[in-house]
Design a protein around this nucleic acid. Sequence first.
DNA 1: ACCCTATGCGGATAGTTGTCCATTTAATGC
DNA 2: GCATTAAATGGACAACTATCCGCATAGGGT
Lengths: 224, 224
Amino acid sequence: MGERVESGAGEGSGYRFKVPVLDLGAHGPGERRDAAERRERVLWAARELFAERGVAAVSMYEIGRYAGVGQGTLYRRYEHKGALCSALLAESAECFAGEIRERARSEEPALAQLEHLLVRLAGFNEANAPLLGAIRDAAGGERRSGMYRNPFYQWLRATVVALLSRAVTEGEAGTLDVECIADMVLAPLNIDLYLYQREGLDMEPERITRSLRRLLASGLRGAG
Amino acid sequence: MGERVESGAGEGSGYRFKVPVLDLGAHGPGERRDAAERRERVLWAARELFAERGVAAVSMYEIGRYAGVGQGTLYRRYEHKGALCSALLAESAECFAGEIRERARSEEPALAQLEHLLVRLAGFNEANAPLLGAIRDAAGGERRSGMYRNPFYQWLRATVVALLSRAVTEGEAGTLDVECIADMVLAPLNIDLYLYQREGLDMEPERITRSLRRLLASGLRGAG
DNA sequence: ACCCTATGCGGATAGTTGTCCATTTAATGC
DNA sequence: GCATTAAATGGACAACTATCCGCATAGGGT
């Protein structure tokens, strides 16, 4: 009883034992049983409190207390609030990645796939804005690059690089510095700008994705 | 003696009395004399400490103490560290804006001017990275949109909108949702991404601006 | 069953941000 | 000069993040 299971969705939250294709600190498989249990408790407490009062209004201290876990324990698992939020996002991210990867197997041209990826990414922003916002907030000062070094962005970036490269070799796109352009293709959907356009400027998601597609399709000069 | 001067560069730091074309909280002209003096002391202390130890390593508390000013006073002037940094940046920003405005008077085509603006903006990032970083860091949580609502970004955005509009009416560009696209044109040069590309990926500024120009000129499809 | 140790625990604590408010002070009108 | 008052002051304080470290314990080895 109580054996550590390496795969297969157990009871609980259901995402702990997924294959770590894209690992955001969801769990470590070599974890002591009590530690794993506490990790669950922390994630559960966070979900609970976030749902009740919104991500921004909940402090790490509260999460710890609500989970019945000391500060030390809390911070050992999740270096900061952003890391905890990344863990909570892992399931959605995994799912998003899965969908994109699925599509990658089709014969569809690379640029069409890229377009699709971006539209889906806007949807991901839309669906996970509060968590994404908190992750961004935690990535300041010493952790400036945290936002870009995290596994999700890295995967996103790598995927875009791959699609762009394919587009170039298949003659769909002109020559491009794909490494550099990949970031620029993703930049307009960074969560800060996205939220500003959505909430500050009252733009619809469709408007945002339409403009981005237009821009990427033919730049500023091209025909509208 | 001690009259409040409204224009003309006085002795001191030299930027206090510039016309507030673009006002970032550099000063208020109807300010009590002692208050103005303390404001100077705070800015001086900040410059001093930032120069000595780097922006990120200096706390508001320290700045207050170094300036010989209480917390209340400090925070009355500058709501948070980001606001203080904006004030320190005011001179450079004013100068940047002046240069761009100057150029705007020429006959040069709108898109060429936009291109120039972006190259100069990369230079601005380069020259003011630490302050810009701190400003960004302060714009989280409640203040999420602070980065975009601040006068500098608003001016930048308005300028790009104007240039794009002109490009469209003069037939240089196809039809565009200029309001939406303006943000997207600026997004690739946001300070977080810029620093990640510069420091994390070791890209040269020229590489960044070249890619951005290429992207804006003809999107992904166009010939390299 | 017992021991040993790597691992985990949690509360105390230091450092920081931002607010509050009783007190002080500059400027204005007389 | 002097009174009045709106503005400004500074330090106490509450909330939060993140680290540290002495103590507890799970789980493998014997």
